[in-house]
Amino acid sequence: MAKLSLMFEKRLVKQVPVGGRPVGIGRSPDNDLPVDNLAVSNYHARVYFDSGRLVVEDLDSLNGTFVNDLRVERATLHDGDSIWVGKHHIKVDASGEASIGPDVERKASAPRINETMVLDTKQRRDMLQQAAAMGERSQFAVGRLKMPTLIVFSGKTDQKEYVVTSKLTVIGKSKMATVRLNGWFKPQLAAQINQKEDGYYLGAGDKVPSVNGKRISAPVRLSHGDIVEICGVRMNFVFRD
């Protein structure tokens, strides 16, 4: 069963399972996860299952609900995501959930389209509205309000801080690398950070980096606060305002 853990900094405040009933998050004490902070609205957000998927929905809160770095109105949650409300965050543990199976049928059946076609503006609007009317409001990202940033703790690099803005970020000795490593015997392309639709993934280059002390075996999606180590350089990955 999926679990939500309310955290303040590194401290666990409360943990609740998600079952058939929505889990309420907010300042009011009658929430399942009450968050005692003025930045949090009385009824701030809720988490529930919808067609087999775990979703978070913002309840028109004043300061917003964030999933990882994105402000959302509604978003599908994945194992390991963090929901941020004010200074608190809620860790999502959905590891016990079977992912949505191929047997889950979508209600609306569409005409079979073999030929590629392009929609005009009106058709496109109608189609997206139709999809939205199928019982789901679209996830709406208000904007990427937080900047993914690497802060260097130790090791030789050309800067102390890097904002990861590009879809392809290279860490290495190459003069074309975003994060330039200084020193002998450092590889031109030591590691890479690639922006995908759901976040920033750290992957190997000529060396294998570690995240929070563990060598990665496949690309890893970076979360706020992760410690990245590569070629003797220690960096903190954070989402900054």
Partner: peptide
Amino acid sequence: LVAEQVRRGILTQAEAERSEMQSVLLRA
């Protein structure tokens, strides 16, 4: 259309890959 629906959280990636609407383009 399906890629846009995935971006908006209306479809999952797996649903998009099985969708019959894969050939519908929003821009061409």
